[in-house]
Design a binder for these strands. Structure first.
Lengths: 214, 214
DNA sequence: TTCAAGATCAATGTATACAGATTCACGAAG
DNA sequence: CTTCGTGAATCTGTATACATTGATCTTGAA
């Protein structure tokens, strides 16, 4: 694997996981020494982070981790609505129903689980639904836009703590989306997606800041 | 201005204007010498082109200008529908109506023009409508997605020749979009946008290949 | 005491040199 | 004649050295 790819992956993960906070300065020499690569591949990694919107370039002061606050969440979710609702419509028209029937069952089961490991399992399941929708849509332009969007969503998710109750409701909402796609009904899938996005945004805006950052 | 920015702008323009055809190999040393910059800033420019989707990186063979063919047009327009229809809705809710009333008049006037310079004037006007919608939406995430999309659209546009008749009809469609936004009616604006995209796609798919490349 | 101007320093932007990898071509063997 | 292997050439990937720009601190004057 190329050194620039490694540097990019490490920095991206650290930014998404809030180990690098918004406003943190990414000095080239400093990060290059820390990651054990030269400045050249690190600069390439920084350029990709800037292209992703995870960092912004200040001239003379280097790159800093981009800000993410409640003021931008409405904007982020507006893009999410545009992309995910249309994706759900397209997936409902082109999907292989059996995959989504299975996903629906697994979401319903996940909604009944309350053990400690259920949170990570739920996030994995949600990521799997995203992947299946991507595969069903099979549109490289939309896929790229969704990938870019999901990176920002992963950052924003840390703003609000997902409590078990929210996870259970969210599982039902995901099940409804899978059900709509499995039924090959574009408008039902779109409506279920819109409902889910609405509740997700409301939850984040209500519970923002409740998370104690370590 | 930085050398890497200049190299990026030049290469991007040449790709969009089909001076660099799909499949053309962008050798680093070759392009660096041609543009009068070193390999380091040129590599940064290539990385940005790859991030934009205008080039794809082959290992060992360098970067080649990405392919754009009729098979991808449906995918591209699916993304366009998702983004532009939602943008029109949001713009209709937040716009300053007077700007769009003016734009509507200018589109109606442009639709009556038939002189040789009308084509470029029309494209400039359409770009101005895009800018005004962007400003009304005032959503950096959507704006970035739209910018990325429009680069690809500019490439695709060269696949089909816009004849005067199509330009006149397109002007009326743009006027309808501006009218819907000026009336602050989201669904009218969305419908006008959908209609325009449908006709635009139909025109491209019907007239593709009719353009004699110089 | 405060503001401004200059100098110094540090960090970015660029160039070049070197190493590793991949591809293409040529030759030999089946 | 085709196919596989080897070798060379070229191109990418990385590192380092140098230049240039911007930021910060200090000093002097009002």
């Amino acid at each position: 694997m190329r050194a620039s790819d490694r540097a990019y992956e490490v920095l991206r993960t650290e930014i998404v996981e809030w180990r690098l906070r918004p406003g943190a300065v990414l000095g080239e020499v400093e990060q290059a020494e820390r990651l054990g690569v030269s400045r050249t591949p690190l600069r390439e990694a920084l350029a990709r982070l800037v292209a992703d919107g995870l960092a912004v370039q200040h001239r003379g002061r280097g790159a800093v981790v981009s800000d993410v606050s409640l003021e931008h969440i409405d904007d982020l979710f507006a893009l999410r609505r545009a992309l995910e609702i249309e994706s759900a419509r397209i997936a409902a028209r082109r999907s292989n129903p059996e995959d989504f029937v299975r996903l629906r069952s697994r979401f319903l089961e996940a909604g009944r689980r309350t053990d400690p490991g259920s949170r990570e399992a739920f996030y994995d399941l949600a990521a799997e639904l995203d992947s299946c929708i991507d595969a069903a849509v099979s549109n490289p332009y939309i896929s790229q836009a969704l990938r870019s969007l999901r990176v920002h969503l992963a950052r924003v998710r840390r703003l609000a703590q997902d409590d078990p109750e929210r996870l259970a409701v969210s599982a039902l909402e995901h099940a409804a989306i899978a059900e709509g796609i499995a039924a090959r009904n574009p408008e039902v899938a779109a409506a279920a997606t819109q409902l889910h996005l609405h509740h997700s945004l409301e939850h984040i805006k209500t519970h923002a800041g409740s998370r104690e950052d370590t």
